[in-house]
Amino acid sequence: METVQIEPSISPDRRAVIFVLSLREKDHECSITREALEQHFWLQPGASEARILRTFNDGRKRIFAVAERKLLANPGGRVVVTASDFGTRR
């Protein structure tokens, strides 16, 4: 399976990062919550948009792996990666 990144963006309410996961020749809009980035990728509360995107990029491989698993488990559903998708809380 091949994943291709299209530039991520911050949701209008700043509570998530929206990204595209390409899987089986189809693009799927996905997102990861800011809470997940704070709990599992050390994003500081109140971080700038640039810092949020940098944190997302730093954890991109793990985030994409989780999103891909969720997409394969529910092919037609919307993928939202949350803190609980990464197991135990820090």
Rank of each mutant, 00 (worst) to 15 (best):
residue 16 A to Q: 14
residue 19 F to M: 06
residue 61 K to A: 14
residue 82 T to H: 05
residue 16 A to L: 01
residue 20 V to N: 07
residue 79 V to Y: 01
residue 23 L to I: 03
residue 82 T to P: 00
residue 86 F to P: 03
residue 71 L to Y: 02
residue 63 I to F: 06
residue 14 R to N: 13
residue 15 R to Q: 15
residue 33 T to W: 07
residue 79 V to I: 11
residue 50 A to M: 07
residue 54 R to Q: 15
residue 49 E to G: 15
residue 37 L to P: 10
residue 86 F to Y: 09
residue 15 R to F: 03
residue 39 Q to V: 06
residue 28 H to I: 03
residue 39 Q to P: 00
residue 48 S to D: 14
residue 26 K to I: 06
residue 14 R to Y: 08
residue 14 R to A: 10
residue 26 K to D: 04
residue 77 G to M: 01
residue 43 L to Y: 02
residue 83 A to C: 04
residue 63 I to N: 02
residue 7 E to T: 12
residue 69 R to M: 12
residue 57 N to S: 10
residue 43 L to C: 07
residue 52 I to N: 01
residue 15 R to K: 15
residue 54 R to N: 13
residue 47 A to F: 08
residue 71 L to T: 05
residue 23 L to M: 09
residue 45 P to H: 06
residue 9 S to Y: 08
residue 66 V to Y: 02
residue 90 R to T: 05
residue 43 L to A: 08
residue 60 R to Q: 14
residue 81 V to M: 03
residue 77 G to C: 03
residue 45 P to Y: 05
residue 26 K to R: 15
residue 27 D to F: 04
residue 50 A to E: 14
residue 84 S to W: 00
residue 74 N to W: 03
residue 17 V to S: 07
residue 83 A to V: 03
residue 8 P to M: 06
residue 51 R to N: 10
residue 39 Q to M: 11
residue 73 A to I: 00
residue 67 A to F: 03
residue 23 L to A: 02
residue 46 G to N: 13
residue 24 R to G: 14
residue 34 R to C: 10
residue 1 M to D: 02
residue 41 F to M: 12
residue 23 L to W: 05
residue 76 G to Y: 05
residue 3 T to N: 11
residue 30 C to L: 02
residue 9 S to H: 09
residue 28 H to Q: 08
residue 83 A to K: 09
residue 24 R to H: 14
residue 53 L to F: 06
residue 53 L to Q: 08
residue 66 V to I: 15
residue 90 R to P: 14
residue 31 S to H: 04
residue 28 H to F: 15
residue 30 C to Y: 01
residue 68 E to C: 04
residue 23 L to S: 05
residue 33 T to V: 09
residue 25 E to S: 14
residue 9 S to V: 13
residue 57 N to F: 02
residue 66 V to R: 12
residue 79 V to H: 01
residue 51 R to C: 08
residue 63 I to A: 05
residue 66 V to K: 13
residue 9 S to Q: 13
residue 10 I to R: 10
residue 49 E to L: 08
residue 57 N to L: 09
residue 56 F to E: 04
residue 8 P to T: 04
residue 38 E to M: 15
residue 23 L to E: 03
residue 80 V to S: 09
residue 9 S to E: 13
residue 35 E to G: 11
residue 75 P to R: 07
residue 6 I to Y: 10
residue 68 E to D: 07
residue 64 F to I: 12
residue 81 V to K: 01
residue 57 N to R: 13
residue 81 V to P: 02
residue 64 F to V: 13
residue 53 L to W: 07
residue 3 T to L: 07
residue 15 R to E: 14
residue 81 V to W: 00
residue 72 L to Q: 15
residue 83 A to Q: 09
residue 53 L to A: 08
residue 19 F to E: 02
residue 77 G to P: 02
residue 19 F to W: 06
residue 50 A to P: 00
residue 32 I to P: 01
residue 44 Q to V: 13
residue 16 A to E: 11
residue 81 V to A: 03
residue 47 A to T: 10
residue 85 D to E: 06
residue 84 S to I: 00
residue 79 V to S: 02
residue 27 D to H: 08
residue 80 V to H: 09
residue 74 N to P: 00
residue 70 K to S: 03
residue 55 T to R: 11
residue 34 R to K: 14
